[in-house]
């Protein structure tokens, strides 16, 4: 491992150097007519980067675009074939963990490897950012993630005022950073320790078994109460960094059709509709139950880890401010009343 410590100007120089070999994306503040949002965008200018705010939309947009052509029935076509590698700068722990979840599903699962996803993912390098402060509704630490450090990113930045510490964890990148001034490892550990202490108070404590017991929770009576105000839009899933549901559709022009892999959302009423007209999830409590159960029961059962990283976006962006934490609290209470919760694995 290599540790470097540079100031803002040095980072700017580094950025300009990296720019030659990489497409660089980072969170930037964007004026969107009726709202101003922080989003991941490709940038040229170092000064545009917003280091302090959690991005309102996730880096999923880059790694797993909303609509992507995947060839058609007659020919396999590789759509993602850019030479240049991409760096995503300033990804916080929650989003790094989320990308790990996507990787689990699309690459690491040997049953199905998504070639398009993999081709793109191989070209993308995550540069993590130690989270400077809690956002108003995130709760990654409650779920057991470490906001100030994540091991899944090969490069990791710790920003302390105008100073940037860079942890190079992957040997592959050492040559890029070689000439920069070294940082003292103990000092950095100290800083990390200090920052983690600022995260101790969480307004949200949770004690639920993971995975959630599938059968018990499926039959629980909390879902109706929880989803009463849900509108059934796609916001919570589209802006969630881990939601990966997709749909294949064909779009045709001039006698040819192309197969697209488009985002879908389990909160849409047509998501589970069958061609026969039957819809197994025909009410919003069933759909909401599926959303929570997928994240806290089905995903952990099938893969490792969780399907939710606690980034809080679904809470912030929901038009009726439906709060996933309330659902988890209700779950905790329900299981407690049922007399001692058992995890779904046992």
């Amino acid at each position: 491992m290599m540790i470097k410590k540079i100031d803002k100007n040095q980072f700017k120089e580094l950025f300009d150097k990296l720019k030659e070999n990489y497409n660089i994306a980072a969170p930037v503040l964007i004026d969107k007519n009726k709202k101003t949002l922080v989003e991941y965008h490709y940038i040229d200018d170092f000064d545009k980067i917003d280091w302090d705010e959690q991005a309102d939309s996730s880096p999923k947009n880059i790694i797993f675009p909303q609509n992507a052509p995947v060839g058609n029935d007659y020919k396999e076509k590789q759509y993602y074939d850019t030479e240049q590698d991409t760096l995503i700068l300033g990804v916080r722990s929650c989003d790094i963990e989320a990308i790990k979840t996507l990787d689990q599903v699309f690459i690491e699962d040997e049953m199905y490897i998504d070639k398009n996803y993999k081709a793109r993912r191989d070209k993308i390098t995550l540069v993590g950012l130690s989270c400077p402060q809690r956002n108003k509704s995130c709760f990654c630490d409650t779920l057991g993630f470490n906001p100030v450090e994540s091991n899944y990113a090969p490069l990791y930045i710790f920003k302390d005022g105008n100073e940037f510490w860079i942890k190079v964890k992957d040997k592959k990148f050492e040559s890029v950073f070689e000439n920069l001034p070294d940082g003292n490892q103990d000092k950095l550990e100290e800083l990390i320790e200090k920052r983690i202490n600022t995260f101790t108070e969480s307004s949200f404590e949770l004690d639920i078994p993971i995975p959630l017991p599938e059968k018990e929770m499926f039959e629980a009576d909390i879902w109706e109460e929880m989803s009463e105000k849900c509108l059934g839009c796609g916001i919570c899933t589209y802006y969630c960094p881990t939601c990966y549901c997709f749909n294949f559709i064909w779009e045709g022009k001039d006698g040819e059709s192309t197969k697209y892999k488009n985002w879908d959302s389990c909160m849409f009423s047509t998501y589970s509709a069958h061609a026969s007209g039957h819809n197994p999830r025909d009410s919003k409590e069933k759909r909401y139950r599926n959303r929570i159960m997928h994240k806290f029961s089905y995903h952990p059962l099938n893969y490792e880890g969780l399907g939710c990283v606690g980034c809080g976006r679904c809470i912030d962006r929901c038009p009726v401010n439906l709060d996933i934490r309330e659902a988890l609290k209700l779950t905790e209470k329900y299981l407690e009343e049922k007399g001692g919760a058992k995890s779904g694995k046992d």
Binding site: Q66, C233, G234, N247, E251, Y260, N262, T270, P319
Partner: peptide
């Protein structure tokens, strides 16, 4: 994301025109 539709009181249709495919009024992408 259709939040504008879901938030609007007018949009109570059991099946919105966006959801059908015969005819397909708007493409999915």
């Amino acid at each position: 994301c259709y939040a504008c539709r879901e938030a609007c009181y007018v949009c109570y249709c059991e099946q919105c025109f966006t959801e059908g495919n015969q005819p397909e009024w708007v493409g999915d992408s």
